[in-house]
Each structure stands twice: as C-alpha cells, then as structure tokens.
C-alpha cells in the first residue's frame, strides 16, 4: 500500500511525523509502518491518524498472525475511514483507550503484552463496535488475495489446468 498524498514520498512524510505506539508512525492525515523496511502508509481523511493506528493494532489483536505484516491489517480496516463510519469508530476507540486508562495505561496502543490487550478486548466482545470490526475482518483480512500465499493457499487453479498434473495427490509423508 502506498501513499501519494500531495505527491509526497514516504520519506518526506515521515519527516513530519511522530511515533505512535510500538509499530506505527502518524502524521497529519496518515498512518505508516515504523520500520524503515516497511513500505506502507495509509492516508486517512475522516479518522484521526491515531485512531486508525489503534484500529490496525486492534485488528491484529483480534486475528493475530505474526507472519502477516501490518499493511494487510491496514488494508482490512481502511474501509472505516468514511464520513459515515468515522463517528462510531472514534467512539469505539475512545472507549478502548478509556478502558486502558482504567488498567494503568495512557492508551490501548501502550499496553505492551498482546495478552493484556486481548483481556481488555474481551470486555468489549459484546459491543456492536467490536462485532463490527471482528465481522468485517473475516472477509477484510482473509479474503485479501495478497495474504493467501502467506498461508500457502493457492486460490483458483482453473487458469492453470487444475491440479491434475500439478500435485493434487503429491503427499509424500504418509
């Protein structure tokens, strides 16, 4: 995922940004991966960049796959950056942050252990916000063709003539 905001490069953007939690940088109207190796950034129009970064972290905490990069979680939730959705998402993330303060952290994103974030999320399980985000991820994350190869899933095979000559019965360890 790349960002072309006002024609700026990622490097130019990052020069005007701040760290947000452990994995993200945010700046005016964008969220990006922190690691210098990461090549993604997400422009946000309706949500606060910090809210979007929290949402990305929440997405990972709901369906954690360590081999799947943040850009795929960002793709899965970027659809919430709309005029209609923004209010609900801001409120939902604010509630998460309130709950985090209740257990001694400034924000949800500041909670260090995934286990502690998951415990906190469990208290939100029955909220419409949590269910909306979780339900959306089922397709938003796992129906991204870009993540399929990470799980070894090959998708359609018709265009290659099926598996009849390409290993439908190639199991060797039985």
């Amino acid at each position: 995922m790349s960002l072309s905001k006002q024609g700026m490069t990622r490097r130019q953007l990052l020069s005007q940004s701040a760290l947000f939690g452990a994995g993200f940088v945010i700046g005016a109207g964008f969220v990006a991966g922190k690691a210098s190796a990461s090549n993604w950034a997400l422009e946000v129009e309706h949500l606060n960049p910090g809210t979007m970064a929290t949402l990305i972290q929440m997405a990972r905490d709901i369906y954690p796959h360590d081999q799947v990069g943040d850009q795929h979680y960002a793709t899965a939730v970027k659809g919430y950056d709309t005029a209609e959705a923004a209010e609900g998402v801001e409120a939902g993330v604010a509630a998460l942050n309130d709950a985090a303060r209740g257990v001694g952290y400034a924000r949800y994103i500041d909670i260090g252990w995934e286990r502690d974030r998951a415990d906190l999320l469990r208290g939100f399980e029955d909220t419409a916000f949590f269910q909306q985000v979780r339900g959306g991820l089922v397709t938003g994350l796992y129906n991204q063709k870009a993540v399929w190869p990470i799980f070894g899933y090959e998708g359609e095979s018709f265009s290659e003539g099926g598996y009849i000559d390409r290993g439908f019965d190639d199991i060797h360890w039985l």
């Binding site: 359609e156 095979s157 018709f158 003539g161 099926g162 598996y163 009849i164 439908f168």
Partner: peptide, 11 residues
Amino acid sequence: DERPACQQTGF
C-alpha cells in the same frame, strides 16, 4: 455424456 473428466481444480 459429452462432459470431460475431472481436472482436480478444487472449487
């Protein structure tokens, strides 16, 4: 019956 054999495509 004028239909081909399975090509093991899945789906």
